[in-house]
Design a binder for these strands. Sequence first.
DNA 1: CTCCTAAACTTGTATATACATCTTTAATTA
DNA 2: TAATTAAAGATGTATATACAAGTTTAGGAG
Lengths: 244, 244
Amino acid sequence: MQVRQVKKNKYKYIYEELADKMKDGTFQPGELIPSENELAQQYETSRETIRKALTLLSQNGYIQKLRGKGSVVLDTNRASFPISGLVSFKELADQMKGSIKTEVEEFNLIKPPPFLQHQLQCSAKDDVWKVIRTRTFDEERVILDKDFLLKKYIPDLTEEICGQSIYAHIEHDLGLTISFAKKEIVVETCTEEDKRYLDLNGFLHVVVVKNYVYLDDASLFQYTESRHRLDKFRFVDFARRHMK
Amino acid sequence: MQVRQVKKNKYKYIYEELADKMKDGTFQPGELIPSENELAQQYETSRETIRKALTLLSQNGYIQKLRGKGSVVLDTNRASFPISGLVSFKELADQMKGSIKTEVEEFNLIKPPPFLQHQLQCSAKDDVWKVIRTRTFDEERVILDKDFLLKKYIPDLTEEICGQSIYAHIEHDLGLTISFAKKEIVVETCTEEDKRYLDLNGFLHVVVVKNYVYLDDASLFQYTESRHRLDKFRFVDFARRHMK
DNA sequence: CTCCTAAACTTGTATATACATCTTTAATTA
DNA sequence: TAATTAAAGATGTATATACAAGTTTAGGAG
């Protein structure tokens, strides 16, 4: 247990620690975790701070709060449960077995055509990084990622960075915070580009995940199309109904 | 403005009212809403209560909180934005144009085969409602919904209810609260059942949305497969990254 | 006029208290 | 013994205060 700064993120620390205990099995699904008052004593903090941590756990599908009873641990073991969207390919790949490879097929700076101006809500004069990458599982290219990033937010992008993780560069190197995304999933017929870059195995359609990604200050900085071969697509999500 | 009960849901009321103001355009995207202290004065409440309402708005994609600046209104106008999953067909249909029709194709009580026992985490002796419905848009049957509900939670289901909205029956008639769901989206090759019930127009695959739906007390009561014709499938989502 | 600084305002975190509401347990009463 | 009641314990909501930390504004120094 590390030293905590005075007024900073105690509840996040508690959230992380409790989440870890559920992931490593210290808390088993179906069990009740200690009550809010007990936890407040254990962590030498107030009940409200514990409640903030538990609210986070509830939102992310770790627990269900039962009024008058306690907080029961939910079953989150469905293989590699991403706990809701916004997981980059790199993060996903880290959790998976098998041989995974990323190849940068195209990398250049462009002036956005009209459709991109619309998607990125930018002008024709803005510079945009265009990155096309393929993702290979078991010697098959099954995902085509088309990334468009505004240069005004990401000034220094290289082909090497794209071969690793763009998100890591943004968050670690640039110190920016990716905050939220709007996601749309549809199915489209394959384009010539899909046929050129992917091993389609005769499939005529791809699942397209369109992502509009925003920074901390609510500025849209990236539009991404992730094009998946039908048989290799899978999306899992946890959703609460009334968001209380 | 209605009378509020003493210690009940003031922050939810404020959340609803502010959300309405964003939906009807009183607050425009890009604008800053009044500060927390101003809102606390307007609603004659404490800042903490306002903060709970704003946290909800943030989680549901209505606003972005900017430290030191204020809360900016996000653009939620992308046509019929469901604001994250768990939207039933009935709720969705209410928002859409065109002729939409639901037809109950099968309705009976069964003993669950092994695969269903696994999906619903129940025993072979439990009674399960099996409901198969088709959804028709513009004279084409494009969605096949296969619902399996545990009778011990939903004792009195009728074919009439299934023709309307099962969710409304559960929440209004039975007074139960649907709390959360785990969702999985994959693509599968069409089954004979798909071909029998849907107008597939030559498509060989369907998008399958598998839903595990839970009640308030964390009990799993429903497993649903929603099978969509490829060209009619669309899923939109709002997701925050670090869930703070 | 320009630059810098300090004040004012904003959201973020931590703590404390009070009471409501629901569940479970224990005690009481018939 | 059985049913009812009361108490204890759990989470939910509302309020208040204090300070931290980021942003903007206003004012002063040069």
